[in-house]
Design a protein around this nucleic acid. Sequence first.
DNA 1: ACGTCTTTGTCCTGCGAGTGGAGAAAGTTG
DNA 2: CAACTTTCTCCACTCGCAGGACAAAGACGT
Lengths: 396, 396
Amino acid sequence: MRRMTARPANAHQARLLKLLRDGGPNSRAQLGDQIDLSRSKLAVEVDRLLETGLVVADGLAASRGGRRSHNVRLNPGLRFLGVDIGATSVDVAVTNAELETLGHLNQPLDVREGPVAVFEQVLAMAAKLRATGLAEGFDGAGIGVPGPVRFPEGVPVAPPIMPGWDGFPVREALSQELGCPVMVDNDVNLMAMGEQHAGVARSVGDFLCVKIGTGIGCGIVVGGQVHRGTTGSAGDIGHIQAVPDGRPCACGNRGCLEAHFSGAALARDAVEAAQQGLSAELATRLETNGGLTAADVAAAAAAGDATSLDLIREGGNRVGQVIAGLVSFFNPGLVVIGGGVTGLGHTLLAAIRTQVYRQSLPLATGNLPIVLGELGPTAGVIGAARLISDHLFSPA
Amino acid sequence: MRRMTARPANAHQARLLKLLRDGGPNSRAQLGDQIDLSRSKLAVEVDRLLETGLVVADGLAASRGGRRSHNVRLNPGLRFLGVDIGATSVDVAVTNAELETLGHLNQPLDVREGPVAVFEQVLAMAAKLRATGLAEGFDGAGIGVPGPVRFPEGVPVAPPIMPGWDGFPVREALSQELGCPVMVDNDVNLMAMGEQHAGVARSVGDFLCVKIGTGIGCGIVVGGQVHRGTTGSAGDIGHIQAVPDGRPCACGNRGCLEAHFSGAALARDAVEAAQQGLSAELATRLETNGGLTAADVAAAAAAGDATSLDLIREGGNRVGQVIAGLVSFFNPGLVVIGGGVTGLGHTLLAAIRTQVYRQSLPLATGNLPIVLGELGPTAGVIGAARLISDHLFSPA
DNA sequence: ACGTCTTTGTCCTGCGAGTGGAGAAAGTTG
DNA sequence: CAACTTTCTCCACTCGCAGGACAAAGACGT
């Protein structure tokens, strides 16, 4: 199948494509209610979109008391690839143009093996998904990487946990391999876009999306747009000082948030606690599995292990303190907590909330929901698909 | 003189007005180079602006090798009033449409006396400026207040240091008194806009403007636009925790940045040091003036007083630590330091820089200038004038 | 079965925004 | 005084778009 190459010719068409993406199949009349255009002009633009093949007719809708409308929808054959590369695992998903996930794979992975090895694996996963008949090819792909990205070029810059990726032309290389347009962004930004598109952050203009996984990052959305900063490192809150003269961090400083709480730090603390005999629960798990992860702590906590609960609470307090500062500074309308440690659930959330509501000013916290992400591990890939669709659904 | 009431009729006219405001008198040809319009269309819009009186002819320019051009400029009779209400003083200035300060008054003031008393004083100052012949009336006014503002309505909300102002309809009341359109904003945001318009932040899209006066606040500019947050309290960094279990703060918490460093905190520390006999220099000043201010500390430091230098350095370290966190989070292209303590000069700046460059990641700090504001006490009033001119120079 | 009302979609006319070229006006330079 | 530049004005033409007339298609009451 030859892939779609057309792009909207003007802002109206771009708007229409996004309405169809976010609202599903729709009639001309309904589209007219959502866009500021006369019916005549609207019809012209829809016809042009039909000609390009981006949009197809979709039968007749039920009558609403008069003549039945002819529905149109985005071409159901369009396929986007969403890739979310984490520090220790990778998610690859295929979506249609409405960004519905049609297939999803998750595999362990070590980013430190470098871009070549990683992309080999990612392409194999994409091929596997394609082989199931979900797609014959891709019309676009969005890629998330766990580090700062020079966004316009789609190139990672000085990523601390991704040695070997610095300056690697991810966008160009993957575009060549996949034969379709590619956009690259920080994984945290994609998570924010995912929750914005299909999760808890719908209809919120300004919000923060804190992702706590192997490391800690924060997606910043201002006026509906992701804020990436001057060098693409905005949201890099893992190395904010949380504890004066605290633990040494890989970055060379002491007391960084990431050194005191993150998936990695939590696992290390749990092993320590188990070895010191503080928790029989954790010790058992350590012996059984030969190591501990954040998931073990979550399970132990769920089983009522006091030490695990303490670890989670203490970590939540640290993160909460930093978030409290960010809330005072940024005054968001919503804070989303996501990432691998979402499994720690409400114990973590309660600790964070306590800190934020106690430390920030009432005006900033009065109407501020602090919630867990709704999409879990699919937030990243949905955000990735959204990234490339936003790009392709904009005038060329 | 009847004031101007016209507004630009469309986006082109708005754009032209802003070009004339920021670039001064200009010919049609030069305007054509800066705007994406054909000469014919441009001429039409300029003619319409001439008809409204917002723009007037300004003679012939020198030849550039051919026919001399007819210059146009903003009506030189237009007058904006810029008001910057601080905690302990107020600045009032009159500008022309190009935002050049024509007259400027500064008087001590106590905001706690409430809006009625304050506005009486402000209106008297405005009348005084008018009486000098600078203006016969005002075409618009911008007002800055030291607290959060619900921006669309121009109403302060829950301002901690301004009891009695909560919910007072500043915009409406002043608009009535002055007989012209009024816009209200946080004083810190106005300082940021001032530095953006005529100071160090020209041509920078994303920057932070930290104002250290009686309190501490931070103006946030994203993509050239001030970010005010969901409830108008964005940038309220004075109550971020800088010292765990630190000094008690007026807000009820402990260790707030403002409790450890600000104009007020510095003055208090200086008195303490003088009374403990740590500094002869400060003790002398305390005796002479019957009290100490940040300016005294600045003077003592300039005279080489070690205790004063230490106070400034320690304070700078505290602020620097918080700014380091904000830099990691926001990744700005510039950080501006301003406000009353600018007099502390490079001792303060050096301490801040040290902290930021040491604690934030290289990618975020690599090309990050941290500089003192260029406009000093006029930043606020220029920002205020800019605020109202942005409003009036937008399509109605 | 029929007329009336509602909703949807198409066609057509007309207005205003905007482009681009021709040419006049006003300079400079040799 | 001729040749070249720059600026400004005027005019014809295109195109985007609104808005109304009208046709198509269905619901509903009589």
